[in-house]
């Protein structure tokens, strides 16, 4: 095999990219309503939306409760979300994965 990026390296890059996207770049995301919300407003069913039961979550709307600076508040919520996602999804997929039969030659 030619020089391949190692598993460790590619996983590290993916994690760093995710942290930067959620923790830093998210601040610059468009604040406009998304396609569904816009259509709901234009065609007249936006008012049927109800507040989520989770709307008093400390991370609701990707803002960290008690942190005033919008950049830090949003970035922190993004980073916490990334960590939660990594723990939950990695745990799930590790538990679900196929176990190779013990192969002493491998």
């Amino acid at each position: 095999m030619t020089s391949r990026t190692s598993n460790r390296r590619i996983f590290a890059v993916a994690l760093i990219v995710s942290l930067l996207v959620a923790g830093v770049a998210s601040y610059y995301a468009s604040a406009h309503p998304d396609g569904l919300e816009y259509v709901a407003e234009q065609t007249g069913f936006l008012d049927s939306a109800e507040d989520s039961a989770a709307s008093d979550s400390p991370l609701a709307d990707y803002q960290t409760e008690g942190v005033d600076d919008a950049r830090i508040s949003g970035g922190l919520a993004g980073v916490i979300g990334v960590v939660v996602m990594l723990v939950l999804s990695s745990g799930l997929f590790w538990a679900v994965r196929r176990r190779e039969p013990a192969d002493t030659d491998a």
Binding site: I10, L15, G81, V82, S89, F93
Partner: peptide
């Protein structure tokens, strides 16, 4: 499996 965890994490971000 570890890649799948990172893909889910990236999609969230």
């Amino acid at each position: 499996a570890p890649l799948a965890g990172l893909v889910a994490t990236f999609v969230f971000a």
